[in-house]
């Protein structure tokens, strides 16, 4: 844990313990851990002098943050308008079926987290599925299964 806290301290130091950079620090903690561990938030609260309730308000307000550990592989389906009219609901159904978890859920083996996103700005590709940062435009059922099978 001490080691983890020193990581948090490094992030705080990078932003000179500037309170107004709280959201930036949370983004970095989220990226390193794939979630925001309570210990990290406590540390931020102490070091920056920001009350815990304010930190939790921010941590539950923005979509980028999670207070629950996330799976090793992030799968998301874009629900932007262009994707919606090109069949995003059906794509989401298929991805849900393939992963056996619904949007916002993480598989018990911590392998996958499925999320939805409101427009990634890749409308020409739509409907879009993103797996660990790789974009897949209008994937077929077979393609979905292939991409998921490639995750270990």
């Amino acid at each position: 844990m001490a080691q983890k806290l020193s990581k948090i301290d490094r992030i705080i130091a990078k932003y000179q313990a500037d309170k107004s950079a709280l959201i930036q620090m949370l983004l970095e903690i989220q990226r390193e851990n794939r979630w925001l561990p309570p210990k990290a938030l406590e540390r931020l609260s102490q070091r920056l002098g920001i009350p815990t309730n304010q930190i939790y308000h921010i941590a539950t307000f923005y979509k980028a943050f999670s207070l629950i550990p996330q799976g090793r592989h992030a799968v998301s389906v874009c629900l932007g308008t262009a994707c919606h009219v090109r069949g995003a609901p059906r794509l989401l159904d298929r991805v849900t079926d393939a992963l056996c978890i619904g949007p916002g859920e993480t598989s018990t083996d911590m392998k996958f987290t499925l999320s939805t996103v409101n427009c990634l700005g890749c409308c020409a590709l739509g409907p879009v599925m993103v797996v660990d940062g790789e974009y897949h435009g209008n994937p077929s059922g077979k393609e979905i299964k292939r991409v998921i099978a490639m995750c270990d």
């Binding site: 009350p51 815990t52 309730n53 304010q54 939790y56 308000h57 539950t60 307000f61």
Partner: peptide, 15 residues
């Protein structure tokens, strides 16, 4: 709780 008592025992979550 936040402004007067400055206890911060209660807060908002979610949006």
């Amino acid at each position: 709780c936040n402004e007067i008592k400055q206890a911060n025992a209660i807060g908002f979550v979610g949006r």
